[in-house]
Design a protein around this nucleic acid. Structure first.
Lengths: 350, 350
DNA sequence: TTCCATTAGTAATACGTATAATTAAAAGAG
DNA sequence: CTCTTTTAATTATACGTATTACTAATGGAA
């Protein structure tokens, strides 16, 4: 019999790292089989294990600091207990808000939240999909600017439910792809009406190339035309401060017949526009009014008039929808599209 | 022989979900063993597999849309290819910045980034540790307000390297626990000197109970005393806007002999303080000057004088440190403490 | 005594992958 | 023609867990 000291397999080179405690180790210590350990650790009632043995196993598990090995569990249970959030840009404070909403529902249900940043580009979204195809999450909350249902169907076809953050109602399909949204066109229309009420006639809109800009532009243009005004749209590439500043400079470069109000497709653009206008020596809102979309935390601080999108609630609703899908049989129903309400937040910038 | 249609095991109940393609499926299709498939897919040169077979395997893998099963890989390789970020509060924009820094290094190296929110409470930090003990990440970048090295050593003892975000130089220990920091006491001293230079004599400081407040208070108090002034500290519970507003109300309630400047332990507190001062009818900086710490994006927009902490670079440095640790033999060296430089950003609020 | 039910477990297997150990066949050396 | 080497693979195993199917021992009923 070899020496029975407690150092299982520490190499000769001064290793000071303990190997992880497994169910096998506990089984050995308690003189039972690994299966017995697994039963005791997982089931609250174990008919086949008497209380004495049960207690012994639990005692050793505690003493040896047992922690279940997550990767092994994922493999065995075919469940990762994780939900993924696919977002275009974590830097945009709208998305951390969304993620918190997801977390607020996921955490109590025992789910982790993973984040994947697509950078708003098609290639990034494609990478997100193949990343998810590797079985990393049980469900996805995602903002996809480029991919449509066909490209997402590979994922949904692998029984990974998806909830998209959309900009309008989406008809149901066969696959477990749901959506949550606020009516972006109507929200945009409401903001445009507000600006017109405030007496503005020349109202420009700054858009980005992708994402919800299309719906937001639709509502704006409809109201403008209905009021006998001419829509005036400037499109820059991204939803960033830089894009907003650039678009605003372009607008200001027009000189005297420039608009009296600028409605930006999101708050990041609006902040960029504000900074640009101020550094051109203009006062907001006296010389030029500015409005945004999303109501990120900074909007309140800056007095930015904007459309409040309930990002936390959208995230929470999306997560709840996913959890329903993950119940037994939850994958069989058709896609749902769930609407939440927006609110026009009137502040000092318009 | 049973029917050999391509529908492996679709239940009778109208299932429309494909099972995932595994190496075994490819092996079957290509008429080789699973091991051959694994070799071809993982090694760029396979002496034992001729080019023809290799090509056939790759062709089938492509056609069948093979994606490696991440959980199985984690189990087999004993590597998760993920780094964890443990943060007190994702809502504080300092931390998304840190996370982006981590991602900027992790992603090119093939690592995912997981986020865990401790809510700044000891219990949350403990939960983070046991979560990590389940083998979910290969390394950790963490901000721990409560846990000290002994509590973290279980993790480090499991060969999970840790990089702490610290507020000062930390002496090396035996375990693979490193730290990155800016000299918080010195940064705080610099800001205090700046406020004194600007003519302030009655300077208060708003602190939170935990975290870097101690070091920041130290630098402030030292400079105040050296200038023959009396340190004046108000401590609230958290690093939040609400705490800042509450502390500021308390200060303003003092009436006429209130301070002329308030230095807040971070920007969230400072923003709360600003809002509170303004809603009390005071002008910033004319009636009361306000300074913060961190330089979150909103600080620039609001004109908040603050200490710039290079959060992105801190995250990137932390991630690089982890990746070094994850190289073979990287766990054997002693803990390092790496310093980055701060900068006092003077804006309109002070 | 024989049979069955209960008690208290254990052995075996599967999840998908990576890799070490092994082998069968073909090619070349002597 | 035999022996060795190379080629082209295969088989077996392990990672840690969960679960199904099985078994050995005991106790009581008929």
């Amino acid at each position: 019999m070899r020496s029975s000291t407690q150092t299982p397999r520490s190499g000769g080179g001064g290793e000071r790292f303990n190997p992880r405690t497994t169910q096998k180790d506990i089984a050995l210590a308690a003189g039972v089989s690994q299966a017995a350990v697994s039963l005791v650790l997982n089931k609250s009632e174990t008919p086949s294990v008497p209380d004495a043995t049960r207690a012994r196993i639990l005692k050793f598990a505690g003493e040896m600091g047992y922690q279940p090995h997550h990767p092994a569990r994922m493999l065995r249970r075919a469940r990762t207990m994780a939900l993924a959030c696919v977002v275009p840009d974590i830097t945009n404070p709208f998305y951390p808000g969304l993620v918190r909403g997801v977390q607020s529902v996921a955490a109590p249900a025992g789910y982790d939240v993973l984040m994947f940043d697509t950078d708003g580009r098609e290639e990034g979204e494609a990478r997100a999909v193949s990343w998810l195809l590797q079985g990393r999450a049980d469900g996805v909350v995602g903002t996809f600017f480029h991919l449509r249902v066909p490209q997402l169907s590979t994922l949904a076809g692998q029984s990974v439910p998806i909830v998209r953050l959309e900009s309008r109602y989406k008809a149901a399909g066969d696959l477990p792809i749901d959506s949550v949204y606020i009516d972006n066109a109507e929200a945009s229309a409401a903001m445009t009406r507000y600006l017109i009420e405030r007496g503005h006639r020349r109202i420009a809109m700054i858009l980005a190339e992708v994402g919800p800009s299309r719906q937001r532009a639709l509502g704006y243009a409809a109201v403008m035309r209905a009021a006998g005004l001419v829509p005036d749209v400037v499109t820059d590439s991204r939803y960033s401060e830089e894009s907003g500043a650039r678009a605003m400079s372009e607008i200001l470069a027009r000189g005297r017949d420039r608009p009296t109000a600028v409605f930006c497709a999101n708050d990041m653009l609006a902040i960029g526009a504000m900074v640009s206008a101020r550094s051109a020596g203009l006062s907001v809102p006296d010389d030029i009014a500015i409005a945004g979309f999303d109501d990120i935390p900074a909007a309140k601080l800056l007095g930015l008039t904007t459309v409040r999108q309930p990002e936390f609630d959208l995230g929470a609703l999306a997560a709840r929808t996913l959890l329903e899908r993950l119940q037994p049989g939850g994958l069989n129903s058709r896609g749902q599209s769930r609407e939440l309400k927006f609110e026009v937040m009137t502040r000092s910038s318009a």
